[in-house]
Design a protein around this nucleic acid. Structure first.
Lengths: 224, 224
DNA sequence: TGTACATCAGTGAACGCGCGTTCACTGATGTAC
DNA sequence: TGTACATCAGTGAACGCGCGTTCACTGATGTAC
């Protein structure tokens, strides 16, 4: 039998045997994600998270003042990760605005697919109010700024026609967010989207979007 | 003082004074929507709905077997309304595939904006499982089919290049669904989208999307 | 038109449950000297 | 290096609450004759 590692990971799902947990804060965040992913957002309760972490039901209060605080921490955690991913994606395609734009969209969808529970907490109903949590707001603003900038650059390069870049970014965000929601979504999934490769879907969607942005002068109503 | 109408509407928020409510089923559905719209999905409880309708907490069980059944009924109701709207929009632009496509998207977003609580129940987490409720599934399938058909027609008219229309419909649905989610969405709204005119946003987005669909041969990865 | 009666749609009290949160407590840790 | 002690991170019992659901019941309705 292999020896136990000197120090058990904080994420250990089994009840701990030490009086002090070691990293209960991290373990509670992980437990919250597991609960949401497995049984939906309503399954996240402080008591259930404590149970998963193997501590008493009062223990979480040493790390979070309330249930709301735990949820906000989960959202913050996820937002930071997503922003990191997007920043990296943006840097990887610094030389091509088109590729940068697409990489950002694909990354957004990839994140949602890889971290559905995070995504739900970040954007779902009952999500923590972004404006109440400055660090959450900052991470969000950075992600949006990356997208915005890639559009401004594309316009400068003549790949996307003129128009308010904030509105264009909004449209792009909406599409990519919609695809993410459907991929992550509850039971009411659009026919078969779940079976498709998310990166493939993301690449196709962002391509259509980018071409559309390039071909018309800002947006126009075409009905009637 | 004006005389009372002979018969109070079923939707009456005040406690009724008759032993029999009249249309408790309808009143419970309306109460459920009000609760979700006002205080979020978690605020929907059978007891609260009964309270709003002015009946005892046991009364709802004469009309719904369980809380789940009430939620499923709300979703079904909303899905039927949305499908009605989309069918009408589709018929109104029967002669122009491009306008039809756009009208469908705009209608989807208009519905979400007009009936946010319905929209959340229909697509949010914890939504009733579509496949378990045949009438829900049928309404959904019809909505998707309308979109699908408008794309097939657009391809026939040479406005949209070839490609699997189901995938194209999926992309279109995702974008429009994303915009709707953001408009309806919880606290984490994308910067300022709520302040914009939803129909305006919808028209612009669908225009970009349609042009994009027309310009590239199906979808292509443009990164790298 | 009047009446008996089955059926329907409510009532109100009660159940057990899991929740968020508080409290006084105790065991473990780490720092000052 | 050893020890006193403040601080920190847990425990376990308890609180009050609102929930979904059940139950025996009763008032209202409508139909058969």
């Amino acid at each position: 039998m292999p020896r136990k590692p000197a120090r058990a990971p904080a994420v250990d799902a089994k009840p701990h045997d030490r009086y002090h947990h070691g990293d209960l804060r991290r373990a509670l965040l992980d437990a919250a994600l597991l609960l949401i992913e497995r049984d939906g957002p309503d399954a996240l309760t402080l008591r259930a998270a404590a149970r998963l972490a193997g501590v008493s039901q009062a223990a979480p209060y040493r790390h979070f003042n309330s249930k709301e605080a735990l949820i906000a921490a989960v959202a913050e955690d996820g937002m930071r990760t997503m922003t990191d991913w997007m920043r990296e994606a943006s840097a990887a395609f610094a030389d091509s605005p088109a590729a940068r734009f697409q990489a950002l969209g694909v990354t957004y969808i990839r994140f949602a697919h890889a971290h559905p529970a995070h995504f739900r907490v970040m954007f779902g109903p009952g999500a923590a109010d972004r404006r109440q949590v400055p660090s959450l707001d900052a991470a969000y603003a950075e992600a949006f700024a990356l997208l915005h900038d890639s559009i401004v650059e594309s316009q400068r390069a003549g790949l996307v026609k003129q128009g308010d870049p904030r509105e264009l970014a909004l449209a792009a965000w909406a599409m990519v967010h919609g695809a993410s929601s459907l991929l992550v979504g509850g039971q009411a999934s659009v026919s078969g989207i779940r079976k498709l490769d998310p990166v493939h879907v993301a690449e196709r969607m962002t391509a259509v979007l980018f071409v559309g942005l390039g071909e018309i002068n800002a947006f126009t109503a075409i009905t009637r």
